[in-house]
């Protein structure tokens, strides 16, 4: 009993910081979910989006001496351009060729982004200084990194705003119509190309927010792209097509990986974070193949 009580603060600290990171996973996963919903394409470049968006901001500040605001604008701008180019140069010519072609294209895009980054700025890790205090803050006696709290709040605002847009607005209805049946959406006069572009641009923008937060916490470099590997367990847990599912999946993955790392890493020397989410994912696939909130295919009987 005494042992458990001593252990509690450590446990809670791991849990809370895990959940905070989990919100950011959810935000990055949002981009992935939107693209999947709209075009059934799996974006293997989502992690590279995080890396590239984050690094553009980092490099603008460190290498080119620009202000934070200007660098952020550049980072978002770069990802918007990449999203638009993706629609124009890849998706449009591949119309009617099946989803696999698009998925392969995203793998190619991932390599291109990584290569571009190394080519332009080199392999050094660059930290993004944010005007947020470095020292942990105390919340209910728990020590938490302030940047994680800020990141979680921004993520929450974005996710809530997006869910609202998605469910209530006419834009949301059009987007869901595209997701439901592309051909018929065209028959309604919905220009699906605009909505594909919108999903890719959104994916780039949310990834950049994630990239900046991680860039501040652990520095931005090519390895930031590994965040993309976390997105898969997150979206599989939540169900590929659901925004609330992505939030839940993000929270679970964030919390579990952090707890596992805190308790198991000291014995095995690290690395737990990288595989525990996948164990979770495999378990989830066995129990609930559609995820927690995934769309089950409607069958009329």
């Amino acid at each position: 009993m005494r042992f458990l009580l001593d252990e509690l603060p450590f446990f809670l600290e791991l849990l809370v910081s895990g959940l905070l990171i989990g919100m950011m996973y959810a935000l990055v996963a949002l981009g992935f979910v939107l693209i999947y919903k709209a075009s059934q394409a799996i974006n293997f470049a989502q992690g590279e989006f995080v890396m590239f968006g984050g690094f553009v901001v980092a490099a603008s500040m460190r290498y080119h001496g620009l202000s934070l605001v200007l660098s952020l604008a550049l980072g978002f701008g770069a990802m918007v351009v990449i999203g638009l180019l993706m629609e124009r140069l890849v998706l449009r010519p591949l119309t009617g060729r099946g989803v696999i072609a698009i998925i392969m294209a995203t793998i190619g895009l991932a390599s291109i982004l990584k290569g571009l980054l190394l080519l332009i700025w080199g392999p050094l890790s660059v930290n993004i200084p944010l005007p947020i205090r470095e020292e942990p803050v105390e919340i209910f006696t728990l020590l938490v990194k302030l940047v994680a709290v800020v990141g979680a709040i921004i993520s929450l605002v974005f996710l809530a705003g997006f869910s609202f847009l998605f469910l209530r607005s006419r834009l949301g209805i059009a987007l869901r119509a595209v997701a439901d049946n592309q051909t018929v959406a065209q028959l309604m006069g919905i220009d699906v190309r605009h909505y594909f572009a919108l999903t890719w641009v959104t994916a780039g923008v949310v990834a950049t927010i994630g990239g900046v937060m991680w860039g501040n916490m652990i520095g931005a470099d090519v390895h930031t792209a590994l965040i993309g590997l976390k997105v898969f367990p997150v979206v599989i847990l939540g169900g590929l097509t659901s925004v609330p599912g992505a939030v839940l999946g993000g929270l679970i993955v964030g919390a579990v990986e952090n707890l596992a790392a805190g308790y198991i890493d000291p014995f095995v020397g690290g690395g737990t974070k990288d595989f525990v989410p996948y164990i979770l994912m495999i378990l989830a696939l066995m129990v609930r193949p559609y995820g927690f909130f995934g769309e089950q295919v409607i069958e009329r009987v």
């Binding site: 209805i173 049946n181 769309e295």
Partner: peptide, 10 residues
Amino acid sequence: PEGRQVFEHL
């Protein structure tokens, strides 16, 4: 369109 093709999830 043929076969109705309503947006099922809307």
